Simulated scan of single mutants.
Amino acid sequence: MEYNLQIKLIHADAKLPYRANEGDAGLDLFSIEEKIIKAGEAALIGTGIQMALPKGTEAQIRPRSGLALKHAITVLNSPGTIDEGYRGEIKIILINHGKKDFKVEKQMRIAQMVIAPVLQVKLEESNELAESVRGQAGFGSTGQ
């Protein structure tokens, strides 16, 4: 099924999100600013876009693997969630886990955005939960 994603460019240097290859899950997001992120620090980077997500969806903001591998730059709250009703500028929180300062340049691909469906569930308080094979085992309980 195909959905329409309305994008509004609100800055002269803004670019539409871009899918590098047909079938890719992520759309690349671009910086509209030049900024130095010092080693060990985080920065909020503007994209110069606003959007209207399709009903029943969210946008997940994820790191770019190349920036993570080559420069230790990642999205701090990964994946970041943009709710369907948000209409402000899309901004990305990048963190520099590297040992050197990193320069974000205008028009640089800084993150990727995946549009995903969101289930709307009815909350139901319960005194008992259905049993499962796993039960309460967690945090490495599978031996990995």
Rank of each mutant, 00 (worst) to 15 (best):
I90M: 03
G48A: 02
I115R: 00
D13V: 12
T47G: 03
I61M: 07
P63I: 06
V118C: 00
T81M: 10
S31Y: 00
S65F: 13
E131W: 08
P17K: 13
E131P: 08
A59H: 04
Q107Y: 14
K38G: 04
E89C: 01
Y86S: 00
D101S: 11
A137I: 05
I90Y: 03
D13Y: 13
H11S: 09
L129A: 13
K55L: 14
K122V: 14
H71I: 02
G85R: 15
Q120P: 07
Q112L: 06
H11Q: 08
H71V: 03
Q60K: 14
R19S: 11
G80T: 08
Q120G: 11
M113I: 02
G23Q: 08
G88N: 00
R62S: 02
A137T: 10
Q107H: 15
Q136I: 15
Y86R: 01
P54L: 10
I110Y: 01
E128L: 13
R109Y: 03
L53S: 00
L123F: 13
E89Y: 05
L129I: 13
Q50K: 11
V121T: 11
E105K: 13
G56P: 07
E89K: 05
S126N: 09
I110K: 01
N127W: 11
L94V: 06
I82E: 07
E33Q: 12
Q136R: 15
G40V: 07
A25W: 08
E41N: 14
L69I: 12
L53P: 03
A14Y: 12
E128V: 15
E84N: 07
I95C: 06
D13Q: 13
L129D: 11
R87C: 00
P17A: 01
I45F: 10
G40Q: 08
N96A: 08
R109C: 10
K99V: 14
E41G: 02
E34T: 10
A20D: 06
L76N: 11
G56Y: 08
K15M: 12
L129V: 10
Y86L: 04
G26L: 09
S132D: 00
D24A: 03
G80D: 02
Q50R: 09
Q50I: 10
A68W: 04
G98V: 05
